[in-house]
Simulated assay, not measured.
Amino acid sequence: MIDGHVHLENGDLSVEYAMQFVEAAAAKGIDTLQILDHTHRFIEFSPMYDGVRNASPLQAQWLSKKIKDHLSDYHRLIDEMKQIKLPVRVLFGLEVCYTPEAEPFLKEILSQFPYDFLVGSIHSIDGILYDMPFSRELLWDVQEADAIYQRYYTLLEQVITSGLFTQVAHPDTIKLFNIYPSYDLHPTFERLAKLAAAHHVKMENNTGCHYRYHTEDIGLSDAFITALVKEDASIITASDAHYPDHVGNYIREATQRIEEIRDQISSHS
């Protein structure tokens, strides 16, 4: 089993803390663990978040608490971890908060270190964060759900086609508040699946929304998984753990659901 997305952000960038995630993975039967952190942790990426800062004092205050380390500290940790014999396969990368205007900056900075993987994610709709406690008053109570969803998935298409990333983070986490659009999402899922397959980008079946926000789906919706399977797009399971105890959360169930849908499609083909 793979847990393709776990964060160190609630601890320090030390071998001791990282090993807590590795040991948790081994205890839960995870074969491969992908460790990362958000780009908003690192001082070098700070200019990329000016739009988020300027959009709201609430967002500026939140962000000021997040930016705290240099990339060199993370790279030192990676080098140290790669010298240790570990009980599971461990890879290191970044979760990059993508915006179209940041592409030139990202192409330059991401090429400076040989990460094992790079995850592209959408966390804001034109500068407004959609997944924070204050997001209702800043976004969801201001804009129509249809417009938010349409913009989110337009940006996600750009993540896939940018050529910057090997993986797409939580591609349907926009549903975290259980607010849905009025239109049918099946064509959107089918379009994204085609793009992911064509660009060889892994799409996360991310369980974080289920155990943190209590969405009904354990990970991706069945409709989204079906579209990905039909297009033979790569799917990677991910817990989005922010604490060692959350490593592997619902990975077994998410993996099982993918296989069930594969079997259903095969039986009808």
Rank of each mutant, 00 (worst) to 15 (best):
T166F: 05
Q83G: 08
F165D: 06
Q167F: 00
K107T: 11
Y180V: 09
M132V: 02
N178Y: 09
D116R: 03
S14M: 11
L164A: 09
S64F: 04
Q264C: 11
L13M: 12
M132W: 03
F105M: 15
A26H: 05
V90T: 14
Q20W: 02
F177M: 10
S121R: 03
G208E: 00
D79G: 03
A102S: 14
I109T: 14
H242S: 04
Q112W: 12
K202V: 00
E253D: 01
Q112I: 02
Y250H: 15
H242F: 03
T173F: 15
P87T: 06
F42G: 13
V15M: 05
G93H: 08
W62C: 07
F92V: 02
F45K: 05
Q59C: 11
H214L: 08
D126H: 10
S14R: 02
R76T: 05
E204P: 12
P57E: 08
Y115C: 10
I30P: 02
L63Q: 06
I265M: 10
V22Q: 06
D146T: 11
H210W: 02
I179F: 15
E260T: 07
T226V: 07
L195F: 02
K85P: 04
I179N: 09
E23T: 05
D79H: 15
M19N: 12
L155I: 05
I2A: 09
Q61A: 15
E190T: 15
E108T: 04
D31M: 04
Q83N: 14
D245G: 10
D222E: 05
Y183T: 13
Q83A: 00
S56N: 08
H268T: 11
R262I: 11
Y130M: 06
T237P: 07
T161H: 06
D131S: 13
I148F: 13
G208D: 09
Q264A: 15
K65S: 14
D141M: 06
R151K: 13
W62A: 14
G248H: 11
N178M: 12
L106G: 04
L138P: 01
H199L: 01
A24Q: 13
I225N: 09
K230L: 10
D222G: 09
S269W: 15
G120K: 02
I2R: 12
A26Q: 04
D184M: 02
Q264V: 13
A223Y: 08
S46L: 03
P87R: 07
Y49I: 07
R151F: 05
P181S: 04
P187A: 12
H170A: 08
S46I: 02
E216N: 05
M1W: 11
P181W: 11
L58F: 15
E9N: 01
Y213D: 14
D73I: 00
G93Y: 06
A254G: 04
S111T: 10
I235Y: 00
K65D: 13
L63Y: 04
A223F: 01
D217I: 03
N249D: 03
E108N: 12
P47H: 06
H199Q: 05
G127I: 05
S221G: 07
W62Q: 08
A254Y: 14
E216Y: 06
R252I: 06
I218M: 05
E259N: 07
A18Y: 09
